[in-house]
């Protein structure tokens, strides 16, 4: 079953900014990553799903229901953590969480104390007196206290120290094991890589690709780095599948996707002193997506 179904979701602000024709599905029980640089349209997409903003065209179905028409009903089962958290400043943490819980027709008090203990959050402090990181913790508790079926996280880790991030990720994985679907938006690839099963890449308001993390990493992309006695001539590695070629004196490095044998054949023609073949990290592959697009733009008339 699809928990999220975006169909040509479009939101235009004036002419330029916004998102265009975003379509992808998130299945039940998935941890789905949503990555792209700042300003790519991640938040716009998420806010449209939450009907904080309304689509210009296209639609978003959550739990199979239209996100605008059935907004209150859908939101009963959504937990949302915004990238920047703001709450009523002169409330106590305890009162804010109680207020938040009062919107859901269930008793959340046990869950509140459990979560805040886990995250080491002082319930008796005023929101105003909390540090940014602690406010974020309030956000996490607030988003999870009603045990939602879908958790939407918009760049959730900013402000959390690494230890807390780890706790938070563990918490999310635990929720996921119970069957909760998670949409995880981020511009930090390593955390998406760590958490997610599949990922949607968005750039300048358009969907670039939806891919399994594993395929994205495999995809026959290998990072080659070689040391040769003599510098390799520029034209030597002119072949299909070679990208990001860099030659610095004796060191040559490039990213390769394609038949491994043909590149190995090439290599045998060189006198190597050293050779590294590595799994590229997502960041590299991802940057590659951008660079390629940029080049296309650069060369288009």
């Amino acid at each position: 079953m699809n928990v999220i179904e975006l169909k040509n979701l479009t939101k235009m602000y004036g002419k330029s900014r916004g998102i265009r024709n975003i379509s992808f599905n998130v299945e039940e029980g998935e941890i789905f990553g949503f990555i792209g640089p700042n300003g790519a349209g991640k938040s716009t997409t998420i806010r449209t799903m939450l009907s904080l903003i309304y689509p210009t065209s296209g639609s978003a179905l959550i739990f199979g229901k239209d996100s605008v028409k059935f907004a209150p009903e859908i939101k009963r089962e959504i937990g949302y953590l915004p990238s920047e958290v703001f709450y009523y400043d002169n409330m106590k943490v305890k009162d804010l969480l109680k207020y938040s819980a009062s919107f859901y027709k269930k008793d959340c008090s046990h869950r509140i104390s459990q979560l805040s203990k886990m995250l080491d959050l002082d319930l008796n402090k005023k929101i105003d007196d909390l540090s940014f990181g602690n406010k974020k913790k309030v956000g996490i508790v607030q988003g999870l206290l009603h045990e939602p079926k879908l958790i939407i996280l918009d760049e959730p880790t900013s402000g959390l120290d690494p230890l807390m991030q780890q706790k938070f990720f563990d918490l999310l994985k635990e929720e996921n094991k119970k069957g909760t679907t998670i949409l995880f938006s981020s511009h930090i690839l390593s955390e998406v890589q760590k958490m997610c099963d599949r990922v949607a890449i968005i750039k300048e308001g358009e969907l670039v690709k939806v891919e399994k993390i594993s395929t994205l990493k495999e995809n026959n992309h290998k990072r080659f780095k070689l040391e040769t006695k003599m510098p390799v001539s520029q034209g030597f590695f002119q072949m299909d599948g070679v990208q990001n070629l860099e030659v610095k004196d004796q060191i040559t490095s490039f990213l390769y996707s394609g038949n491994i044998n043909s590149v190995l054949e090439k290599l045998t023609q060189l006198e190597l002193t050293n050779l590294w073949i590595e799994e590229p990290d997502l960041e590299e592959i991802f940057l590659h997506y951008y660079e390629k697009e940029n080049e296309d733009e650069y060369f288009s008339p």
């Binding site: 904080l52 009903e73 859908i74 939101k75 959504i78 958290v85 009523y88 919107f103």
Partner: peptide, 17 residues
């Protein structure tokens, strides 16, 4: 003003409510 829309309006209530 207080940027709490993300809190209140993502709760299961309609804007009219």
């Amino acid at each position: 003003r207080e940027k709490t829309a993300d809190f209140l309006l993502t709760k299961p209530v309609t804007r009219s409510q």
